[in-house]
Nucleic acid binder design. Sequence first.
DNA 1: CTATTAACTTATTAC
DNA 2: AAGTTAATAG
Length: 777
Amino acid sequence: MKENYLDELNQQQREAVIHINGPLMIVAGAGSGKTKVLTTRIAHLMRNGVDAFNILSLTFTNKAAREMKERVEKILGSSEARNLYIGTFHSVFARLLRAEAHRLGYPNDFTIYDTDDARSVIKTIVNELNLDDKHYKPSFVYNRISAAKNSLMGPEEYQHDHLVQQEDMRANRPLIGKIYDMYAKRTFKNGAMDFDDLLFKMYILLKSFPEVLHKYQHKFKYIMIDEYQDTNPAQYEIIKLLGAVNENICVVGDDAQSIYSFRGATIQNILQFEKDYDDVKVVKLEQNYRSTKSILNVANEVIAHNTGQIEKNLWTDNTDGETIKLVRTMTDNEEGRFVADTIAEQKLRNHYNNRDFVILYRTNAQSRSFEESLRRKAIPYRIFGGLSFYQRKEIKDFVAYLRLTMNTRDEESLKRIINYPVRGIGKTTMEKAVVYGNDHNITMWEVLERAREFGFKGGILEAIDGFVTMIKSFQALLNNHNAYDVAVVVGKSTNIVKELFNDKTTEGLARYENVQELLNSIKEFTETPDEEGELLDKSMGSYLQQITLLTDADQGNDENSDVVKLMTIHAAKGLEFPVVFTVGLEETLFPSGMSINTREELEEERRLFYVAITRAKSRLWLTHANSRYRFGNLVQNEPSRFLEEMPEKFIDRSYAGGGSVRNAFGSGATSGWGNGGNMFDRMQRKAPGQAPQQSSPKPMAKPVSSAATTHVPTPGFTPDDPAGMEPGMQVEHQKFGFGTITAMEGAPNNRIATVVFPKGGGEKKIMLNYAKLRIVR
DNA sequence: CTATTAACTTATTAC
DNA sequence: AAGTTAATAG
């Protein structure tokens, strides 16, 4: 136990830490030691007799939760911290729901759908309703449903809410409510919850079962919430319910860093906290320990352009530091080169390691040019975000087997793998099974179990029975085997591992490695002792529950590896780096073109810029390109309006950087480059020596096939039984016309004939089982 | 039924 | 530029 743990805090920090009972709001400016305060406060609570089992702490990432536990443990010098309930909203609620799901009619091993799964369900429903999925775009519908759930609005309410209905009418999509209703029923039937359900159902659970509410109100006597400015109404209401008895709620946040309104977060939660409870203690952490004066001054001045904030004055004792470097390049590729060159140069000049650098961008798609340039300079890097490991196709395929084994109601997973690897159950069969399931109000799995009853026969019946038997054999393992053992059997029996192994293409190799990595991670899961201590659950169900909620940022295994990091600004929240490159500071990109229509949107973009700036400890570069590729063609962009909001005296616009870049123009340079003068850049994309071919945009006119399609089948064309076909015969094909069989190959049940069609494009190989041939003589 | 190819969409941000 | 969907040959 560190006895002097309070001495390491400043006045405000200490005030926050020693406040034990009653509501507390900590307004924590960027870099003001927020995590330190949170962890010390938890330690202090425990020191003063609060049982770790009675503390609930909600963080923004799983990684933050892990770190927090470690730090509390360090302060206390005991392993008591393992009994703390710490995690993200989603992972904590998933755990609680898993214990209580039966009350809501869900299986306790419910599946958690990620955004892709959810959109896929929506797409099937849109198609079932015979609606156009180009008009009712699954992503659009999903966002509407998500927004509804985040404000605790169920399907019935949605369909009867005037305002919402009006919005949908105006958007010319009146049936979203209907889709929402079907979606809710379908996911329930599938035994699945999406991300929003983890909050929504948690609320329903607490609201509908007073005994459950009572239980958790008394379990979680002390509640702490990090990043409170990014909570949405659902989270807000849940916390209100849980904290209602003891009102020992401590929220930490910074309204200036609220950047998740697109996820339903409302800044009102933090602005109104004082009004929600009586006698709220408010502490402001205003001393920044992270950044230089230059960086902090720029940040403060930028954020001052926003209206209506909690009043605070963020200051620092740190040195002035370097000026902020503002750099303009001609293209996105040049921007990439500039950053890579500068990293190389800074490593030499100021003895930085790769891990000291981060490249921050507004959208994931911007990573490409930086990857290329870093690779060219042999600087190791790692991208965070984008599609995470668990979203990759081969991983989702494998996981789908595990999910289905756990929960056969999960139709999404079933559809994913019913014909992977290929086992002869095609689209038609699958659609039949879906329809039978809907007609008889049973799950698709039950249809497959009773395939014979539903009239499947022959090879297809065999394939279905084989599939069902295989999944059942996996289920038999669940009781007495851990997650890893089951996964290994799945990999073997399905042939997935072997199939990927035999694929020797580069992508195939990568896929094989990814599946191996998945197996490794499952193994690691089964072998690591449970932090929570509460339940030692190494089952498949426990494994599956957590992986969908893992972010890329949580994969901290190579935590200390010496690599440059690339991520979106959103992903960088809560992190800090010695040297930061914030790139792509251009109108329509940052601020995003989608977020400049209202003041609220624009202010959120500005807060995002504020977050980007305040990640930097000592050096900050801001870059923007004159033009960049978008959807494969070049577009021009004005410099971001945010650049004009920065105080001149901390900005260096003349920095030319590390070598290859010719110069950097002041941002006053005129726009409009005629045809985008980047011939240089365009030529670089081609192989050396090869002239850029600017004409013939389309490859060429379509070849062949014209003659073949002109053949008109003889009247009354009927295909003959392929069994009697032999080399030498004259045959007629619907499209290729008349021809002669010259050879015959393949297994007896899958014979392939080689036929020469004089008018129909020459020699063709015809699979007799599918192509229709008429014997002429 | 399956594999290949052509055509078409798509890129805020994320648990 | 990259990924997905629809069309079509076999």
